[in-house]
Design a protein around this nucleic acid. Structure first.
Lengths: 221, 221
DNA sequence: TAAATATTCAATAGATTAGTTGAATTATAT
DNA sequence: ATATAATTCAACTAATCTATTGAATATTTA
């Protein structure tokens, strides 16, 4: 019977190893980025503000834990999440932390300083108003992420190019912006610019991953 | 802008702290037990085969991470999961590990040695056959866990008492047993005893937590 | 074939952190 | 007051973890 205990312990140790792989802020940021789209090491290092070698090391740990996998493309190596359930795990982790730790709300307020300034729109509301043509929906993430999947009906309008592209938007409709999800500041920044230019704006807190997990379909073109 | 980076880092650090709290086999076993029912420290220590002091220490860490909470009952302190989403997180973690790590299957085969000997029954199949009265469903977990919630129509028949209680079962129907889920060996042990006594048996891999997460209702009486 | 590029590897420093145990302590109930 | 349940403390051991560097590898391009 003491063997049984060992085997049970081995199982829990395996589960703990996965949790261990996620138990680092840098690695979580990498997972978060990869949940939006597959990327090269360089790209990840730049987005996460880490050295290349360090990024590579952390990616190795994630790979060992089978949370990410690689695929070569020319001289680049492209990392991707190994499985959609990894996204689910990341969302579950975020959700528990968000619900249980008041510090998350505080940190979020410090990060997204204008979070409470903009009107929020729910998924249901958005869908109704998109149908009737009352609102226009923009995806302000980098174009690569848009190409990897976006909300149906969304226009790609990366934050970096919004000043130029803004003019192309019809000015009789409210603009709803979304980005990588509730812990992403890009949509707020886009709305700030749009609002300064006299647009009626609102933010959708959900990103593509949250949208998808809720069971809604995603567009690719 | 470098402040922004700090705040983002702080957020990921908070998420990582939750993962860190789960990144230990003993603590995962405690979470697993608490997912079945609230318990005292003593009870947890006994079930998990750990010293009392050690159990207490690990529980403190889980409490700090807000994954569990306490409630006093006389001289006892009762621990429970702080939130149903903690169960979801635990299931998501288990699911990722199960899908990505071949070692989990191997360890499971070593732990549940007779796992492949018994017929498995799916949730759908079970529901159909319960309706028609073709099968009888037993919950072989300790009675406390049964009382905390069980599958509708299940009889409480703890593994420890199955020898005595077995006789009460009608002998014209197949007996389906379940316990704490796919990583629990109790149902297998019950089926072994029942099969030796000439019963037709089958195992339901799902436990109450998996059942509940799938959206099915749970009974309490 | 050689050069250029992207990524990984190996080795290291340095700090921090984690897990366990037994004894002492606190809190509650009788 | 005494017994019971749980927590905390002190102490020890061990281990892990991150970030950094420069060298090495693998693939493509010239």
């Amino acid at each position: 019977m003491t063997e049984k205990r060992q085997y049970k312990q081995r199982l829990y140790t395996l589960f703990a190893a996965v949790s261990q792989a996620l138990a680092n802020p840098h690695r979580l940021e990498l997972i978060d980025l990869l949940a939006q789209a597959p990327r090269t090491v360089e790209d990840l290092a730049r987005e996460a503000d880490m050295s290349l070698a360090n990024t590579s090391q952390h990616l190795q740990r994630l790979k060992q834990a089978r949370l990410v996998e690689t695929q070569r493309d020319g001289t680049f190596i492209i990392y991707r999440l190994a499985n959609p359930t990894v996204s689910d795990l990341w969302l579950a982790l975020r959700s528990v932390a968000g619900q249980q730790l008041a510090e998350v709300e505080q940190a979020l307020d410090a990060y997204r300083t204008r979070r409470h300034e903009f009107k929020q729109i729910t998924v249901q509301e958005l869908q109704e108003r998109l149908q009737t043509g009352e609102v226009i929906l923009i995806d302000v993430r980098p174009a690569t992420e848009y190409r990897n999947g976006h909300l149906p009906g969304a226009l790609s309008m990366p934050l970096s190019e919004i000043q130029q592209m803004m003019a192309a938007l019809p000015d009789d409709r409210m603009v709803v912006a979304y980005c990588r999800g509730p812990y992403c500041v890009m949509a707020d920044q886009a709305l700030e610019i749009l609002a300064e230019n006299g647009r009626k704006v609102a933010r959708l807190e959900e990103g593509v991953v949250e949208w998808q997990q809720a069971g809604y379909p995603v567009s690719y073109h």
